[in-house]
Protein backbone atom coordinates (compact mmCIF):
# COMPACT_ATOMS: atom_id res chain seq x y z
CA UNK A 1 0.00 0.00 0.00
CA UNK A 2 2.79 2.36 0.91
CA UNK A 3 4.59 1.51 -2.33
CA UNK A 4 1.43 2.09 -4.35
CA UNK A 5 1.01 5.49 -2.77
CA UNK A 6 4.60 6.36 -3.43
CA UNK A 7 4.31 5.28 -7.07
CA UNK A 8 1.13 7.29 -7.48
CA UNK A 9 2.84 10.29 -5.97
CA UNK A 10 5.78 9.87 -8.30
CA UNK A 11 3.52 9.65 -11.33
CA UNK A 12 1.54 12.70 -10.25
CA UNK A 13 4.77 14.59 -9.73
CA UNK A 14 5.96 13.44 -13.17
CA UNK A 15 2.67 14.63 -14.63
CA UNK A 16 3.21 17.97 -12.96
CA UNK A 17 6.69 18.23 -14.38
CA UNK A 18 5.55 17.18 -17.87
CA UNK A 19 6.13 14.36 -20.25
CA UNK A 20 9.77 13.57 -20.98
CA UNK A 21 10.80 15.30 -24.15
CA UNK A 22 8.60 18.36 -23.71
CA UNK A 23 9.95 21.81 -23.01
CA UNK A 24 11.88 22.34 -19.80
CA UNK A 25 14.97 20.69 -18.44
CA UNK A 26 13.31 19.04 -15.43
CA UNK A 27 10.89 17.21 -17.69
CA UNK A 28 13.74 14.92 -18.68
CA UNK A 29 13.90 13.38 -15.22
CA UNK A 30 12.23 10.00 -14.73
CA UNK A 31 10.88 10.07 -11.19
CA UNK A 32 9.39 6.53 -11.08
CA UNK A 33 12.79 5.06 -11.95
CA UNK A 34 13.53 4.57 -8.23
CA UNK A 35 10.79 1.96 -8.14
CA UNK A 36 12.53 0.02 -10.89
CA UNK A 37 16.06 -0.04 -9.48
CA UNK A 38 15.04 0.06 -5.83
CA UNK A 39 13.68 -3.48 -5.37
CA UNK A 40 16.73 -5.33 -6.74
CA UNK A 41 19.13 -3.11 -4.82
CA UNK A 42 17.16 -3.57 -1.62
CA UNK A 43 16.94 -7.35 -2.18
CA UNK A 44 13.19 -7.34 -2.51
CA UNK A 45 11.20 -10.25 -3.97
CA UNK A 46 12.00 -11.39 -7.50
CA UNK A 47 8.56 -10.73 -8.90
CA UNK A 48 9.21 -7.02 -9.00
CA UNK A 49 9.78 -6.97 -12.84
CA UNK A 50 6.10 -7.87 -13.17
CA UNK A 51 5.20 -4.82 -11.19
CA UNK A 52 7.13 -2.77 -13.73
CA UNK A 53 4.35 -3.62 -16.19
CA UNK A 54 1.80 -2.12 -13.87
CA UNK A 55 3.99 0.94 -13.46
CA UNK A 56 4.31 1.18 -17.24
CA UNK A 57 0.58 0.88 -17.79
CA UNK A 58 -0.05 3.68 -15.30
CA UNK A 59 2.66 5.71 -17.03
CA UNK A 60 1.02 5.15 -20.41
CA UNK A 61 -2.44 6.07 -19.16
CA UNK A 62 -1.23 9.29 -17.58
CA UNK A 63 1.61 10.48 -19.76
CA UNK A 64 1.73 8.72 -23.15
CA UNK A 65 -0.55 9.24 -26.18
CA UNK A 66 -1.11 5.48 -26.54
CA UNK A 67 -0.94 2.49 -24.22
CA UNK A 68 2.00 0.22 -24.86
CA UNK A 69 5.32 1.96 -25.44
CA UNK A 70 5.71 3.13 -21.85
CA UNK A 71 4.88 -0.32 -20.51
CA UNK A 72 7.45 -1.87 -22.78
CA UNK A 73 10.08 0.70 -21.86
CA UNK A 74 9.58 0.38 -18.09
CA UNK A 75 9.53 -3.41 -18.18
CA UNK A 76 12.61 -3.42 -20.41
CA UNK A 77 14.43 -1.24 -17.89
CA UNK A 78 13.37 -3.58 -15.08
CA UNK A 79 14.54 -6.64 -17.00
CA UNK A 80 17.88 -4.98 -17.83
CA UNK A 81 18.45 -4.04 -14.22
CA UNK A 82 17.48 -7.52 -13.05
CA UNK A 83 20.17 -8.94 -15.31
CA UNK A 84 22.88 -6.50 -14.24
CA UNK A 85 22.29 -6.02 -10.52
CA UNK A 86 23.23 -9.60 -9.47
CA UNK A 87 26.65 -9.04 -11.09
CA UNK A 88 27.52 -6.16 -8.75
CA UNK A 89 27.87 -6.42 -4.96
CA UNK A 90 27.84 -2.68 -4.30
CA UNK A 91 24.52 -1.41 -2.88
CA UNK A 92 25.74 2.04 -1.93
CA UNK A 93 24.19 5.30 -3.23
CA UNK A 94 26.85 5.18 -5.93
CA UNK A 95 25.26 1.93 -7.22
CA UNK A 96 21.89 3.72 -7.22
CA UNK A 97 23.43 6.43 -9.40
CA UNK A 98 24.98 3.98 -11.85
CA UNK A 99 21.96 1.70 -12.15
CA UNK A 100 19.68 4.73 -12.38
CA UNK A 101 21.71 6.01 -15.32
CA UNK A 102 21.66 2.59 -16.95
CA UNK A 103 17.91 2.13 -16.46
CA UNK A 104 17.18 5.66 -17.71
CA UNK A 105 19.20 5.12 -20.87
CA UNK A 106 17.49 1.80 -21.43
CA UNK A 107 14.07 3.35 -20.90
CA UNK A 108 14.67 6.23 -23.31
CA UNK A 109 16.09 4.04 -26.06
CA UNK A 110 13.41 1.36 -25.81
CA UNK A 111 10.62 3.95 -25.67
CA UNK A 112 12.05 5.65 -28.74
CA UNK A 113 12.28 2.31 -30.57
CA UNK A 114 8.68 1.39 -29.72
CA UNK A 115 7.34 4.78 -30.80
CA UNK A 116 9.36 4.80 -34.02
CA UNK A 117 7.25 2.30 -36.03
CA UNK A 118 4.09 3.99 -34.80
CA UNK A 119 5.21 7.32 -36.25
CA UNK A 120 5.01 9.00 -32.84
CA UNK A 121 8.71 9.23 -31.99
CA UNK A 122 10.17 12.65 -31.46
CA UNK A 123 13.75 13.45 -32.39
CA UNK A 124 16.11 11.77 -29.96
CA UNK A 125 19.01 14.13 -29.26
CA UNK A 126 22.20 13.47 -27.33
CA UNK A 127 21.48 16.48 -25.14
CA UNK A 128 18.11 15.10 -24.12
CA UNK A 129 19.51 11.63 -23.57
CA UNK A 130 22.41 12.97 -21.48
CA UNK A 131 20.19 15.30 -19.49
CA UNK A 132 17.66 12.59 -18.73
CA UNK A 133 20.30 10.07 -17.78
CA UNK A 134 22.15 12.49 -15.50
CA UNK A 135 19.08 13.89 -13.78
CA UNK A 136 17.48 10.49 -13.28
CA UNK A 137 20.72 8.98 -11.95
CA UNK A 138 21.10 11.89 -9.54
CA UNK A 139 17.51 11.44 -8.42
CA UNK A 140 18.09 7.75 -7.86
CA UNK A 141 21.36 8.52 -6.07
CA UNK A 142 19.53 10.97 -3.79
CA UNK A 143 16.90 8.38 -2.93
CA UNK A 144 19.62 5.79 -2.35
CA UNK A 145 21.52 8.21 -0.11
CA UNK A 146 18.36 8.90 1.90
CA UNK A 147 17.72 5.20 2.28
CA UNK A 148 21.34 4.67 3.30
CA UNK A 149 20.97 7.39 5.95
CA UNK A 150 18.13 5.39 7.50
CA UNK A 151 16.48 8.51 8.85
CA UNK A 152 13.76 6.75 10.87
CA UNK A 153 16.27 4.85 13.00
CA UNK A 154 18.38 7.97 13.41
CA UNK A 155 15.30 9.88 14.47
CA UNK A 156 14.39 7.18 16.94
CA UNK A 157 17.95 7.24 18.36
CA UNK A 158 17.85 10.99 18.64
CA UNK A 159 14.49 10.86 20.51
CA UNK A 160 15.85 8.19 22.79
CA UNK A 161 18.91 10.26 23.66
CA UNK A 162 16.77 13.32 24.39
CA UNK A 163 14.43 11.32 26.62
CA UNK A 164 17.33 10.14 28.69
Amino acid sequence: MKTTLLVTAALVAQLALGLPGTAGRLTTILLPMVFVIGPPLLREERRWPHYAFALGLAWDLLLEPVVGPGTIAWSASAVAISLVVPLVADRSPRAWVVFGALAAACFILVRHLTLLPLGLAADLTWAYLLSSVVLTSLWCGLVGWLIALDLPSRWRSHRARKLR
Binding site: V66, P117, L118
Partner: peptide, 17 residues
Protein backbone atom coordinates in the same frame (compact mmCIF):
# COMPACT_ATOMS: atom_id res chain seq x y z
CA UNK B 1 7.11 -14.22 -21.58
CA UNK B 2 8.25 -10.63 -21.31
CA UNK B 3 9.22 -10.49 -24.97
CA UNK B 4 5.85 -11.94 -25.94
CA UNK B 5 4.13 -9.36 -23.79
CA UNK B 6 6.17 -6.60 -25.44
CA UNK B 7 5.02 -7.77 -28.86
CA UNK B 8 1.39 -7.77 -27.76
CA UNK B 9 1.77 -4.31 -26.24
CA UNK B 10 3.34 -2.97 -29.44
CA UNK B 11 0.45 -4.42 -31.45
CA UNK B 12 -1.96 -2.85 -28.98
CA UNK B 13 -0.25 0.51 -29.46
CA UNK B 14 -0.34 0.06 -33.25
CA UNK B 15 -4.08 -0.57 -33.04
CA UNK B 16 -4.56 2.75 -31.25
CA UNK B 17 -2.50 4.92 -33.57
Amino acid sequence: RTALLWILLELLAAAQV
